[in-house]
């Protein structure tokens, strides 16, 4: 994960990008809580909306993998399916952890 290159791709300097990455982690963790709550309640609409939010935010900063997994969750949930969602949530959490580690370095 190279923040310098990712920042450059978006036309930002590294400090700006780090600030945005930090915000992504904060907002996505909040969205993940809503998503998990939706899973507990088997509320696919709530799951889809939370996943939609993560998808867009992560995608905007170039975190393609997180965005892609969130897109899968959103798509499944809109079809009424929550099958295999736990594994996907873990993938997103791992991705967010990796970003946090990169910020701390």
């Amino acid at each position: 994960m190279n923040f310098k290159d990712m920042a450059s791709d978006l036309g930002f300097d590294e400090d700006d990008f780090t600030e945005l990455a930090q915000l992504l982690v904060t907002t996505s963790l909040s969205d993940l809580k809503k998503l998990e709550n939706g899973v507990d309640l088997k509320n696919t609409d709530k799951v889809a909306k939370a996943a939609h939010s993560i998808k867009g935010a992560a995608g905007n900063l170039g975190f393609i993998k997180i965005s892609g997994v969130a897109a899968e969750i959103e798509s499944d949930a809109r079809r009424g399916s929550l099958t295999g969602i736990e594994k996907k949530i873990k993938t997103i959490k791992a991705g967010l952890n990796a970003i946090m580690n990169a910020i701390d370095q």
Binding site: L10, G11, F12, D16, E19, L20, L23, L24, T27, S28, S53, G56, A57, N60, L61
Partner: peptide, 12 residues
Amino acid sequence: DNLLNLKLIEKS
């Protein structure tokens, strides 16, 4: 409603 998007737009 997404704070990251707002921040991204603001900074850009």
